[in-house]
Design a protein around this nucleic acid. Structure first.
Lengths: 372, 372
DNA sequence: CTGAAAGCGCTTACAG
DNA sequence: CTGAAAGCGCTTACAG
């Protein structure tokens, strides 16, 4: 048995082979079910492996096969505040299940700090610790992402990246979704003075959701009575946005927040000022990662299929790794409108879900919608 | 350059060495700053490595060093419902920062399904994909955990495991914390008929929190007027518990929920029946992972320092791996009482935090409290 | 002091 | 058909 520095013995193929009296090569073939090994030997080897508790060394195998047997989920450090924590849980759940199905390990790679210089996740790739990477919630102009894509290593981005035409990515149609939920406020609830509180505008989602709001507003001739305030996706910035609206004496009867966290912050301020939601002001969010449903009033929002999205991204990544797919591609998943109390549709304990198919492709040809 | 099956070239030490005209051994020593290599050669090698974008192969290094350079966070599949998602985010954040400081990769290991047979995370250890593991939210009697601990491999458990005397673990004093928050309801808010909705009782936290409730109730002579209902930590079970209380016509003026999710579910039912929180019934939760603060009314709770706990667990794990610490040990972190609106202490937008030092060690000698 | 072999554990291409 | 070498990339103990 091989001795590890800390004194633990680990069982190697050599141990299995010598117990049976064959070479390691034969033992290896026996375990992989190679047909040139007799059934008798195969069984003996497998029995020995079982008894000894043999598990192949991932390092030995990785070195020989030139494949790590792992994929990485990359989280740029700058994104700490970009999505709420729950988004990332959904991503992890989706990627983990795909990784399990492919007998692959899952590595979570964050950038310790920006100053640290060498980008941690590029090291992960170059050191071949992972065979490929899924990158989530990165800024529009993150040069590291661009560099990573350019290396030609297997990388799948979650989100929309119009400035990275060579990338493989998976996202949703933020423009269309925000347009739809804004139209809902206008058409169904008679909102005539809508406000949009944006996300961070260095992220494509922020830009796209703003664009969706603008399209709906323009289509309904509400340009004059609508307003846009910049937020940063934090609850505090949602609260600040509403306080600013009130301080500026702006008239508004509906707010489209670019995410749920901000909607919650805004809702709190409205309530504290005695403004009723949805009676005085209808509000909606975006994400539905968990907070929206338990809020009071429950929040009408766009449900982002984060888990399916990341699961699909992982499957796509495995296809890149094994060569059965090639980039560049962009795939889009459908989202749902989840109608609850905050827009005036439902009571606090009920919800109504409307599928929103991606019928209005935009940007490039490769897009297509995937039914879930 | 080595060719990978998918056609990507990766730079190896050999490439660096041959560019400079030295052996790989010399190049290796140069890069690690070994003094036997002349400054001139060292600089030349480093320059070459930089230019070629050389990053050491993790597989090669792992094989040679008998060390993976990675640690694993293990999540038993059965725990899907045990803690809310946000708990795990805090765990990941804490472990990731410690791993980064130790130049270690972070592997997330879940059990695909119980039926899958071979326990996934034991494979991770046996295959030496990770040098050690942090195990979180496992059931009291999980035989896999016990087996894992018995292997003597570096493992740190998060939680309290009185039945695993050989384990290295990091936790909080659930008994003391629940006793304190129950006493708060009784002493400060005059609750005379308290109810406890337990967590899952196959987890030590569930048992301990119930014990804490019982201690407080007994100390105040409220045995006769108190009740205990079993929950499962889900929001739905909190709601169901309250419905049962009402259906049974039980008189109660305070509820100690074993976690925040259940408290939120219970709170919703109370509100829908026109029972005011905290005026008619004071309620408290446990965790403070995110929902408690944004709930209406904001939830008084015990703040579990999940991030610090798991960070400490990771540091402890690295000590086990490098031999600078040995098990068994148990460490306890301090928690805080966070007083908000649901018990009647504060308004919806304010909170008051009371540190709760672990002054009452119980169980075994090794425990000590760590100030944060 | 320095050159270069040995070997970590594995699998497959090669020689017989 | 089968035996066993070669080599993935690395680092250190050894020989000179």
């Amino acid at each position: 048995m091989a001795k590890k520095p800390d004194g633990h013995a680990s069982v190697t193929l050599k141990d299995v082979a010598s117990r049976v009296g064959v070479t390691t090569a034969a033992a290896s073939m026996a375990l992989s079910g190679h047909e040139r090994i007799s059934e008798k030997t195969r069984d003996a080897v497998r029995k020995a492996a079982d008894e000894l508790g043999y598990v192949p060394s991932s390092a030995g195998r990785a070195l020989r096969k030139q494949r790590a047997g792992a994929i990485a989920v990359v989280v740029p450090n700058t994104s700490q505040h970009v999505f709420g924590h729950l988004y990332f849980m959904h991503v992890l759940t989706g990627v983990a299940s795909a990784a399990n199905e492919h007998d692959s390990q899952l590595i979570v790679s964050t950038n310790p700090d920006e100053a640290h210089g060498v980008v941690a996740y590029e090291r992960v790739m170059r050191s071949r610790t992972a065979d490929g990477a899924i990158v989530t919630s990165s800024a529009i102009d993150d040069p590291n992402i661009e560099a990573l894509v350019k290396t030609g290593l297997p990388v799948v981005l979650i989100g929309n990246f119009p400035y990275l035409p060579d990338a493989v990515s998976v996202g949703i149609d933020d423009v269309r979704a925000t347009e739809a939920i804004t139209e809902h406020l206008i058409d169904v609830h008679g909102v005539t003075a809508p406000v949009h509180v944006t996300g961070t505008l260095d992220h494509q989602t922020g830009v796209d959701r703003r664009e969706g709001f603008l399209r709906a507003v323009r289509a309904h001739g509400l340009d004059e009575t609508s307003h846009i305030i910049e937020g940063d996706l934090s609850e505090a910035s949602g609260a600040a946005a509403v306080e600013q609206l009130l301080a500026d004496g702006i008239r508004f009867d509906g707010i489209v927040f670019a995410n749920d966290d901000m909607a919650l912050g805004g809702s709190r301020v409205l309530r504290s000022r005695g403004i009723r939601v949805p009676d005085d002001v209808a509000i909606v969010g975006f994400d539905d990662f968990g907070l929206a449903r338990v809020a009071t009033p429950a929040l009408t929002t766009v449900r982002v299929p984060a888990e399916q999205m990341s699961r699909f991204a992982a499957e796509q990544l495995f296809r890149l790794i094994d060569g059965s797919a090639q980039g560049p591609t962009h795939h889009e998943l459908d989202v749902e409108l989840v109608l609850r109390a905050s827009c005036g549709c439902e009571h606090d304990d009920t919800e109504h879900v409307i599928p929103l198919r991606g019928e209005k492709p935009h940007g490039n040809d490769m897009q297509r919608s995937i039914s879930q």
